[in-house]
Nucleic acid binder design. Sequence first.
DNA 1: CATCATATGTAGCCATGGCTACATGTCAAC
DNA 2: GTTGACATGTAGCCATGGCTACATATGATG
Lengths: 142, 142
Amino acid sequence: MATNKAGTSQDNVFHKTRRDHSNEIAEDYVEAIAQLHSEDGACRVTRLARRLGVSHVTANRTVARLVSRGLVTTSPYQPIELTDSGRRLARTAKARHEIVIDFLISIGVPAEIATADSEGIEHHCSPETLKAMKHFSNTRNH
Amino acid sequence: MATNKAGTSQDNVFHKTRRDHSNEIAEDYVEAIAQLHSEDGACRVTRLARRLGVSHVTANRTVARLVSRGLVTTSPYQPIELTDSGRRLARTAKARHEIVIDFLISIGVPAEIATADSEGIEHHCSPETLKAMKHFSNTRNH
DNA sequence: CATCATATGTAGCCATGGCTACATGTCAAC
DNA sequence: GTTGACATGTAGCCATGGCTACATATGATG
């Protein structure tokens, strides 16, 4: 995935979108892991899998990739722990997530739908867009 | 991909996001194909590939999948044609795309960034969210 | 301590989306 | 009509993310 020196030298808008796909998953995972940590005090693979709506196998394997990216640490039959880097990513993902949800709600999207849509949208918002969203929610929500 | 009767019976928010991924690509493709049709009068594989920032091989293979989904028709060394169904999808994708761009611009995101972000965002907007966006842009943009 | 449910881990399959390298078709210009 | 540039097509590789089926570990309960 990091091997992106594509034949077509042009680095257009689509590239970015595609390249990001596995980062999105990483973010979803660390965010969920952090959530489970605060809910349960620890993150077990099975719970994580259920939370993300995938099989425990998929969760396991993806977590392994997160380990190799230095985002989490694991040892056999033990709960999953976030590294500092993982925690940081989880925090920013969560923050972004909240900005998007609040924003959608503030433009009139029903909360439940806002929550669902934000799942997909959050990963594609540039800092500028997030800033605009935040600004908008703030000047409106009180 | 349609084989989604996952072990975990719960059909949570993440499911949707993941399942949609190949539809996103289909939409990007038909939209680009329609664009090239109006720009060039026909859609050749190479142009399409360049437009989407992928190799002609990838474009070719993805187009083959679109054929099997009934969205486009091809014959060897001939331009790619959209079916009615493909045209319809392209139209709605384009409409959605424009709503998102206009909206982002209207909340203050610079045009260029709005264009880039919309690429990723558009696929994740429910009808409700699009409606809210449209409404917002309309009541503001004049 | 044996047993059984549940959690975790492993093997191996599938589809998608990306690529390079090579083969072949098309077409214009000589 | 050859030739050569460019478009198109094919073969085969890689990584990711999904799954089922099976194997093993853990821990509670009899």
